[in-house]
Amino acid sequence: MRTRLKELRARNGLNQTELAKRAKVSRQTISLIEREEFIPSLLIAVRIARIFNEAIESVFLFEEEEIE
């Protein structure tokens, strides 16, 4: 899974700490997701997507073979 988190944070002028507060997770979790070392639960993915006003699938990008 790839993610646009870093790009979206930069676009919205949010640091990891601020995004973490809004998504109700720790900064470490945001950092893990950004480094693509951890796939978040659906609940956190929805929260993050809503913060950026984007659809989940445009924030978290899956390769076709991953979801087949």
Binding site: K24, V25, S26, Q28, T29, I30, L32, I33, F38, P40, S41, I44
Partner: peptide, 9 residues
């Protein structure tokens, strides 16, 4: 009290 990312680590 830890979130899922912290628990993963």
């Amino acid at each position: 009290a830890s979130d899922e990312g912290e628990r993963h680590v």
